[in-house]
Design a protein around this nucleic acid. Structure first.
Length: 200
DNA sequence: GCCAACGTTGGC
DNA sequence: GCCAACGTTGGC
């Protein structure tokens, strides 16, 4: 008998919610992280900043390579056509929000999971039973001014004290999640920062 | 380059 | 189902 192979956990089962009666929150805005500076992984450059998206045909690209279940679930189960997201620059000299993008195609299987030569190949995935999903996003605009992580962090710390709009921003409360929801009040507040001087 | 945080793996 | 070991993320 071959040894039983343990199945990878797949987070498919609905988790018992902490507050049974609270309906699940519906999100209409998102933040998606990407790296604008060159970083080599298995000989492949991971660089994909807002400027790179802008240069794509129709300024549109598929958001492939996500290999985290929470991030996948947000894309697969909750992202809807026409919703907008912040394009966040991560793992770079100046991390922060660079622009706004729009979801132009709802989730479908991420082709890179099937490609043996791809950095994001997943031997446990099959075409019949894909594990990873992606959406298509389109460049909408560049922020009027770059909203840096440092600036957001100062505000987040203030708002934790004062109960302000960025008190629970996922960028800090779930720091390593690469696709994360942005609440309406957070979205509006961050947009309002564009028209003010930093720190004013 | 360091390393804290945290998600995933897999033995028990 | 627990949890230690391990790997990755990503700010600093």
């Amino acid at each position: 008998m071959p040894p039983k192979r343990r199945l990878k956990s797949d987070n498919e089962k609905p988790k018992k919610s902490k507050s049974e009666n609270a309906p699940p929150e519906v999100f209409t805005h998102w933040l998606m992280k990407s790296e604008p500076e060159t970083r080599m992984q298995k000989g492949v450059d991971m660089k994909f900043g807002l400027e790179d998206l802008k240069k794509c045909p129709e300024q549109t690209a598929c958001w492939d390579g996500v290999r985290n279940y929470q991030a996948r679930n947000f894309m697969r189960d909750q992202m809807r056509l026409g919703q907008s997201a912040f394009f966040y620059h991560s793992n770079c000299k100046e991390p922060g929000i660079a622009g706004v993008i729009q979801i132009v195609k709802e989730s479908y299987p991420d082709h890179t999971q099937f490609d043996k030569k791809d950095v994001h190949y997943d031997s446990t995935a099959s075409k019949d039973n894909p594990r990873w999903f992606m959406v298509d996003v389109k460049y909408e605009r560049t922020m009027k001014r770059f909203i840096s992580l440092a600036e957001l962090k100062v505000l987040h710390l203030e708002h934790k004290q004062t109960g302000g709009p960025l008190r629970d921003l996922a960028l800090f409360t779930r720091a390593r999640l690469s696709v994360q929801p942005v609440r309406e009040e957070e979205w509006q507040y961050i947009l309002s920062l564009e028209d003010q001087e930093e720190g004013s």
